[in-house]
Design a protein around this nucleic acid. Structure first.
Lengths: 105, 105
DNA sequence: TAATTATATTGCAATATTACGATAAATATT
DNA sequence: AATATTTATCGTAATATTGCAATATAATTA
């Protein structure tokens, strides 16, 4: 075992889970915060901001990208990373809906 | 390696990450949705709702509980599970703040 | 074109997660 | 007390994640 049984759940359940999963690591939260804090697309220096090696940061960026939480575009030798508001908004709406439909307790 | 370097990140970053991580599995999303859909605390029958074995569901419930996303109280032979609005609200606020501080792109 | 700079990929070790059968624990009921 | 019901825990196997050193790739600059 060890493999998630994704096919037993709905597309939306898997989608939301994969976005949440991508945010489920402090390094990736830190990356998102840094991209937001600087109010701009960041070319480079994400590695210098984190207490992790370059390959590790690159891997985290890849996961955030594949979850649709950030976009990356080539900018010379560097790559420009930017947060993707749409995906965050999708998660936000889902969670707000959770709170709204809650009636008991 | 394989162990997350939690001590290199802030308490809040770890907190948000752990809530997101708990939601990072379709089965746990399905559990949350079921608890919300039924508009009540559910004693039992969560296992019957999911395509997973009882021990597996029990484990997922434990994770949701330890992340503070649900509460469980003994109710006879059964256990009554309920979603914890506070934790969901905490995540919601954090994500909304993300969207608000986003200015570029 | 060679050197430089920035990011990605590969390979690997350590650890974590997912899933379930078997079994235990807790509470009700007979 | 014995049985039934419900949930938790243990043990274990399969897979995933985390992290980094080494290396590769891509684009710029000298």
């Amino acid at each position: 075992m060890g493999a998630t049984k994704t096919d037993h759940f709905s597309v939306q359940q898997n989608q939301i889970a994969s976005i949440a999963k991508a945010l489920g690591h402090p390094a990736r939260i830190a990356i998102m915060e840094y991209l937001i804090k600087t109010d701009a697309c960041i070319c480079g220096d994400i590695v210098n901001e984190l207490p992790l090696s370059q390959p590790t940061v690159s891997q985290h960026l890849k996961e955030l990208k594949s979850a649709g939480l950030i976009n990356g575009s080539v900018e010379g030798t560097a790559i420009c990373y930017c947060i993707n508001t749409e995906t965050i908004s999708q998660l936000s709406k889902y969670i707000l809906a959770m709170l709204e439909s809650k009636k008991c307790c």
